[in-house]
Every structure is written in C-alpha cells, then in structure tokens.
Amino acid sequence: MSHERPSADVVKAPCGGGGRGNEPAGLSRRDMLKYTAACAVSAFLAGCSGPEREAFFQKRFKELSPDEVKRVLARLEKQHSEEIGKPVTVGAAPALEGVLYGYGLDLSRCVGCRRCVYACVGENNQSRDPQIHWIKVLSMQKEDGVDIMKSDAYYNPEQVPEEDKFYMPVACQQCRNPPCVKACPVKATWQEPDGIVVIDYNWCVGCRCCMAACPYGARHFNWTTPNVPKDQINPHMHYLGNRPRQRGVVEKCTFCIQRVREKNGRYPACVEICPVGARKFGNLLDKNSEISHILRDKRVFILKEELSTEPKFFYFYAT
C-alpha cells in the first residue's frame, strides 16, 4: 500500500539522523508509553523527517510547556517560511487579562456586499479551492423577519441591497456555552479566557462532531489539503488562528486572534473592511467599549437564543 500521509504540515526535508536535537535528558514515563504505543504508527511513518515526526508526536497545545511551545512555533515558522518562500511569524499570544471579546452586527446597516467574507478569507488563509468561507451572509425577506430556514446564502443580484431584503452575516458566535467544545472527543477545541473558541489543528482528529453540534454552521472542514496561493498568504500568524491548516481538520472564526491579541489589539479584518460600519467589536468588560454601548442602548438579539448557547455575537438594530 502506498502510504501517502494525509498531512499538509509536512516539510519534505531529508530524514535527519537522530530525531530531535534538543530532546530533554530523561523521558517521562508517560512519554515513554507514548513512544512505545506509537511504535506501529512509527513504522507507518518510516521515512518521515524529523519535523514530521515531531508534528506527529506533538502533545495537545494546552499541555505544552512554555519551552515546548517555543520549539513548536519555531518549527512551524521554519516549515511555513520554506513552503511559502517568505518569512512568516507564528505567534501564540495568550489572552489579555480583563478582556472578554464581544461582537456586534448592525442588521439595519448591513447591505450584504460580502466584503467581510473575502477580507476574512485573505486574513485567515482560508482555502481558496476547495472554498472555505468562515462568514456566510444570508439574505432574508423583510416580510419574513429573521427566519433562517427561509434564508438564501447564494444570492447574487447585480446590486445590493435589494429592495425587499435584508442581510444577516453569520460566523462563529463565540458562545459562552459552546456545544462544539462539549462534543469534541479529544479536547482539541476549547474556550480561551478571553472567550474565543479555538482549535488546536495539530490535535484535531477530524471526527466532525463539533460541526454537527454547532447550531450556526460556523465550523468548516478541510476536505482536502487547503489551497492558498503563496503570494496571497498572510504571513502574520497565530498558532490557534490563521496559520495554514492541514488536511482533515476543522477550522473556524477566531475573531482574528492574531490581530485582536496584539498590543492594543487591532480590530478584526471584517470590522475594518465593512463599508457601512455595520460591524462592531470590543471588550465586554470595558463599559466604555463600543460593544458595551450597544448592549446598553440598542435593541439586541442573539441567534437561536432558545438553545442557551449564549453567543457573544450580538445582532442589533441601530435605528
């Protein structure tokens, strides 16, 4: 059988003798067990290079020590820089303290132009073919109100907005009570202290339970190796965010974790692009943030509130 490893995070480098150079002196029992138990798979991996093996044996992100995180990030930076042919940075900035992100979307302003969809694709290195869109813009009849079952995601008129329609972009709602996190059998997805639900692409097994569990269609699967033209790759990456994904793993919106966790925090790409200013973002714990003003002063609703997922993504009507 020809074993083509279904993996995208592989550098075809010659097999380095001796594996990891900076391995700790003594292996823990647990590690030992791991290495032994994975022997069969090692045979499967015969001929794989050091980084490939390292990626295979990598622990879950939350279990990594700070030193190990550094090593993993360095490995990824080297690997992606070589693949893309330009330097990339892969960060792992932790959550800022005293921050809980919230998002507001003004349904009375959105014109359904889909600028946000493609800004998101570019910022977050989503696969172009097969196509992955983290944001889906639904058009709805004004006379029906917010009725998802009568919505259309594939509308394509000459001009928007259309007279009798309104538009509702949907992406990850960053639930406080996320059903997707509950569904994951290997804890490959979790909620960060700043409220962002993230995925460890190196730990996900691709069972897609989370996709079935998500009420908002926010999770997307890499049905094959994602394809992003090299010159369009955003080299500013976060481990839990927009770094290139591998085949066979799930991905989702992270509120542009690589932007919002910077010092002072940039706005997510969709907020920056929106030509009508319908998208609002900020810290729910800061009572002067835009999002706090919206929650105080505006008519706000959350999508599928009856499911008690408690989204931190708020739809509102400014007028």
């Binding site: 279904p6 138990a37 295979f56 994951c184 059998p185 804890k187 097994v205 069972c207």
Partner: peptide
Amino acid sequence: DMGRPDRAWHMMPGLGMLN
C-alpha cells in the same frame, strides 16, 4: 470517516486526551 486516522491515538486514554 475520520479526517485524521493517524491521530486516532489522541483518543486513547492515558496516551491521548479522551474528553
């Protein structure tokens, strides 16, 4: 059905992280 059958060991108690 698994996207990453090579990571099936992530589900093994003790070895991986069974939720």
